[in-house]
């Protein structure tokens, strides 16, 4: 009879107890596997666009990756919030918006620095962020009020409807309109000044 799992070399006689533990291990692996697959899926579908979202919302583009990572971790570690793909994206965006508010972000980054060194980014990625830093649009965006900026980004980058933006930011639809139009106007001024 074929033995499925390699037995500990020293104790061939304990075969009795081995199957049990092997099965458990397999079950664990499978349970783990399902969540990981979901994580991978969301990662593929949304990670890049969230990176963009963070880059547009943040003052320092260097922490984009951290913010998006943190958002992923938060959303995925809250079991049950991640079942519906549509909702997952909404949660992720919401979290990125929350995290992009500076005080909060500083806090989590502080925590992160304590617990784990930041990954050293590959040079190619650094390059992309450096270029981003130099982009006129980004500079102009930094001149906007935070709310204006958030509305513009959610509305036109994340393609949310006004109602969604309102919900995400916790403001009224009327405010979304107002911030949006003033934001566009301000952006236009800033862009022209930059040229």
């Amino acid at each position: 009879m074929p033995v499925i799992a390699p037995l500990p070399a020293r104790e061939p006689a304990v075969g009795v107890s081995v199957p049990g533990s092997t099965t458990e291990a397999t079950d664990d692996a499978m349970a783990e596997g399902t969540t990981i697959d979901f994580l991978t899926e969301t990662y593929r579908a949304h990670y890049r666009s969230l990176l963009g979202l963070a880059a547009l919302l943040l003052d320092d583009t260097a922490s984009c990756e951290d913010v998006v990572q943190e958002a992923f971790i938060r959303v995925h570690s809250a079991r049950g919030r991640v079942r519906d793909p549509e909702k997952t994206l909404a949660y992720l965006r919401q979290t990125v918006v929350n995290l992009s508010r500076s005080t909060l972000r500083r806090r989590i980054l502080g925590m992160k620095l304590l617990s784990k060194p930041l990954p050293n980014m590959a040079s190619a990625e650094e390059g992309a962020y450096e270029q981003l830093e130099r982009a006129d649009l980004i500079k102009a965006m930094r001149g906007l009020q935070r709310r204006q900026r958030e509305v513009l980004v959610l509305r036109y980058f994340a393609d949310m409807t006004e109602a969604e933006v309102a919900r995400t930011l916790g403001i009224s639809a009327g405010s979304v309109k107002a911030y949006g139009s003033r934001g566009i106007a301000a952006l236009r001024v800033a862009m022209e000044a930059a040229r």
Partner: peptide, 11 residues
């Protein structure tokens, strides 16, 4: 917006 962040890649 799309253009400016389009070059970003995950690490």
């Amino acid at each position: 917006f799309q253009d400016v962040v389009g070059g970003l890649e995950p690490s």
